[in-house]
Design a protein around this nucleic acid. Structure first.
Lengths: 227, 227
DNA sequence: AATCTTTTGAGAGTTACTGTCATAAGACAG
DNA sequence: CTGTCTTATGACAGTAACTCTCAAAAGATT
């Protein structure tokens, strides 16, 4: 999801170029305006406060009012930054990474392979950089039904995004059932891997587990008896 | 999910025998007590009222109080029958059907084939008997984020159930990542098929679509270039 | 008919969220 | 650096989905 772009350009009806430009600008324009800096700061403050409370009291036992108080903002402000409490946890900034990865793959490569090559490195990168935070989020995702539930919506978003890219690349329609099914299946397998990893406190390498999961699916569908 | 067993035997601390006996009794004792009959009636009344309101006003615009009023029960009673508003929609009684189907398959059959043979006929049966209701539910599932989200939890339950059965049959551990990934992938593909079907107002046969989806996944994982 | 058990409704309380509006604070022009 | 314009904030009121408690009603049992 939008990695909290400080000033989310809501409608880019103009051009697909805009997206890339914005991303670039965001990275280069180091001296952000004071407003933007403050916004980022509050956002971080809220999230930090929230996670601190979550780890000590648990997700459900922590109220939005508490979080707001702890972050020294009003409850209204909380909701301005995070439309729902769940949004604190389910923010996956790596869809774009995956899409970019996908686009680099050769067109004649099998789709599963392209996806594998897009997902696995992305996972590896993420765990490398923000591993701790991700583990915590994924653990919440395993444990808190509300979040687990909510994350399904994010997955659908991811699926739609990937399907759109692949549809474009293969010249299929956007709503091709086969394509959707395949992408969903792959994402499901990878989610299982991530869940498994989080459930074991980040033991082992997520990326490896993800490959393992994908291999298991491939093997299963190849018709192995498997007992 | 428990298809609303009229008198859920909450604690059978006595004996495992009790469970089977109760289940048997429940099926045989056709002349249900007056209480049970009334309970079933209210449950139906609530659901009927709810669906009527949903179709006219939409899901979000319909409040629980309205539903309760329409069904002529108190709001308290509503929540006694359906712990959440979403539960009105996401009640899949066919997990047991699938599990039973799975158990009839030969042990040396490939897992994917067993699951396919368990899922497809189950789908066929359901659409045959309660097709209209299912279509409506699935459409809500497509359209209402809250429900879509919630149904993810049901899917996890299904997955766990199926994984447990398959783990037992293949002698694998319950938490085998490969098995989980495979089952999740298959369920994801089938969900796509159902969603696709509902999105097109029940046009075509769900079971066929499901097979199509599974075939697409198989093909994808077989390494076809696929463009 | 009397007693016991379960279901029901009334009401009060909590929490996540929405909308409105006045005020405060950064941005910018002159 | 002053005035104006824009945007972020907080206070407040309101809604709706739940949760809990308790007393009354209704089915079950002897």
């Amino acid at each position: 999801m939008t990695p909290a772009p400080p000033n989310a350009t809501d409608q880019d009806t103009t051009d697909q170029h805009t997206t890339d430009q914005d991303a670039l600008e965001e990275l280069l324009a180091a001296p952000l305006g004071l407003r933007e800096r403050k916004k980022l700061k509050t956002r971080r403050a809220i999230r930090t406060a929230a996670f601190r409370l979550f780890t000590t009291q648990g997700y459900d036992a922590t109220t939005v009012d508490q979080i707001a108080a702890d972050a020294e903002v009003s409850p209204s402000t909380f909701f301005r930054y995070f439309p729902t409490k769940e949004d604190l946890v389910v923010s996956d900034d790596y869809d774009p990474v995956m899409v970019a990865g996908l686009r680099t793959r050769p067109l004649d490569e099998p789709l599963t392979e392209s996806m594998r090559q897009a997902i696995v490195p992305a996972l590896r990168q993420i765990t490398g950089t923000e591993g701790g935070d991700m583990l915590l989020r994924m653990k919440l995702l395993n444990e808190v039904p509300a979040i687990r539930s909510r994350s399904a919506l994010e997955m659908i978003r991811s699926r739609d995004l990937i399907v759109a890219v692949l549809a474009e690349r293969t010249g299929r329609p956007d709503d091709d059932l086969g394509l959707r099914a395949l992408v969903s299946a792959i994402l499901a397998a990878c989610s299982e891997a991530v869940a498994y990893w989080a459930d074991r406190d980040g033991e082992g390498d997520v990326a490896d587990l993800c490959e393992l999961a994908l291999n298991a699916v491939a093997e299963g569908f190849s018709g192995a008896a498997w007992s």
